[in-house]
Amino acid sequence: MTRTMVVAFLALCSLPVLAIDPAPLLPDPVQQARYVDLIHQLRCLQCQGETVADTQAMFAKDIRRQVREMVQAGKSDHEVRQYMVDRYGKIILLRPESAWLWLAPALFLLGGIAIAWRVLRQRRALLATDTSEVGDEPEQS
């Protein structure tokens, strides 16, 4: 089974009860949007790899309630995240704060552009000596 690990954690998740949290929407749409955004950034530690927003574990339900109450009490996003980190450690943040991780994709792209530029320059120079004939078919495989 390809998902044994996930499944193993899911088993943990669903042991007590399936907890969909039927809370009414927050009256303030801005707060509601912030709440939804925040619960998508927190990791359900009972089930690994899933967000608190997308699981039905008890843990996720408690955390959702806590986030909702803090948002309603006027706490900032940063305060909510810090509250969770103080108790659970950085492992609860699914959006890592490490600058390297965020820079890496851009660096990869720059590296890719550099390589493409080099190869293209080489190959264009070779056009003058390359006399091979290639069919016009887009794909003659």
């Binding site: 009972q46 806590q66 659970y88």
Partner: peptide, 13 residues
């Protein structure tokens, strides 16, 4: 029952 003390202790299981 509310799970609040558990959150304070960082409990998840």
């Amino acid at each position: 029952r509310e799970g609040r003390a558990s959150i304070d202790y960082g409990v998840y299981g």
